[in-house]
């Protein structure tokens, strides 16, 4: 892997893709995203009565000639889109080969690259760790900064907050509403609640759940004491067919709950493996499911 995380071939695949949010969000600066606000663009919005002082360039001369009444054409404004890249930095992300975190970093950079190229404002944030907020990134030239941020060495074992706690903190902060791209393994029982919180705050949630084979098909056997790396709690089991079957059932139910929570707030959900390539992700999820266009 190069310093830029992505392969050159992957950059080519990502070029030309644009994020396709379902909602419209107000921006801070002029950008390429249509907003609900009236402004200057080529997207017609509505007609209204002429008022004194209006720009005559937007007067509909055809209507004036036919009805002898001055009517103004209004257009939708175009602003930038806030894309919040939330990267789960909890201890559970260090499992897998390659680790789920490394996979998450790669996919987050890919999505960030698409957003930067689309003129959106990218706001990266690591969840679970207490780090100073990263400044908003704009433009393709900011991609190296995004990669540097993602490649910072972090001790995930030292993560202080749980995933759901970090999301709640994010919800309660005065961030712009926008597209929240959550890269996580989702192994937090409170996560569905937190997702509903994100939706309630007005964000559109894109949840990319990254699970390795350790979670999907655990290779455990015998009498074990399972130690939860995030909470430090332990659980004694006898790993046999019955227990493994029950585990898989619970995991599937949890994932389904996550998916339902995301869809309920109008977001999108996909389950990927850390070893999935960007190309696979583009074909299987981002383009196929309409995350990007």
């Amino acid at each position: 892997m190069s310093n830029l995380v992505l392969e050159p071939r992957e950059f080519k695949l990502l070029d030309g893709l644009r994020l396709n949010p379902r909602k419209s969000f107000g921006g801070k600066v002029r950008g390429e995203r249509l907003t609900k606000k009236k402004g200057i663009s080529i997207e017609f919005a509505d007609f209204r009565e002429y008022a004194e002082g209006d720009d005559l360039r937007h007067l509909d001369w055809n209507v004036l000639a036919r009805l002898d009444s001055p009517v103004m054409r209004t257009y939708r404004d175009e602003e930038d889109l806030a894309v919040h890249i939330l990267l789960d930095g909890s201890a559970s992300m260090s499992f897998g080969e390659p680790t789920k975190f490394s996979g998450a970093v790669r996919l987050a950079c890919a999505l960030g690259y698409v957003a930067l190229c689309g003129g959106d404002a990218v706001v990266p944030r690591i969840l679970g760790m207490r780090e100073p907020n990263q400044s908003t990134l704009r433009g393709r030239s900011s991609f190296p900064r995004l990669v540097n941020w993602a490649n910072q060495s972090r001790d995930q074992e030292a993560a202080k907050d749980s995933l759901s706690t970090s999301i709640r903190q994010f919800v309660s902060s005065s961030t712009r509403t926008g597209l929240v791209c959550l890269f996580t393994d989702g192994l937090d029982p409170e996560l569905p609640t937190s997702i509903r919180g994100l939706g309630g705050r007005g964000h559109e949630v894109l949840l990319l759940q990254i699970l390795s084979d350790i979670e999907l098909d655990p290779d455990l056997e015998g009498d074990l004491r399972l130690i939860d790396v995030e909470r430090g709690t332990s659980c004694e089991i006898t790993a046999n067919g019955q227990v493994l079957k029950e585990y898989r059932r619970r995991l599937a139910a949890h994932n389904q709950e996550l998916s339902d929570a995301v869809l309920r707030v109008g977001g999108r959900y996909a389950l990927v493996h850390p070893q999935d390539s960007v190309e696979q992700l583009i074909q299987r999820v981002w383009k196929k499911q309409g995350w990007m266009r």
């Binding site: 192994l187 009498d223 659980c235 004694e236 089991i237 227990v243």
Partner: peptide, 22 residues
């Protein structure tokens, strides 16, 4: 039972089911 410690990403998914046969 003296059990082997295994670190897992999350324990809440595991059933608290102990069948001690030794």
């Amino acid at each position: 039972m003296r059990r082997r410690d295994v670190r897992v990403p999350a324990s809440f998914l595991w059933p608290n089911q102990v069948e001690e046969i030794r």
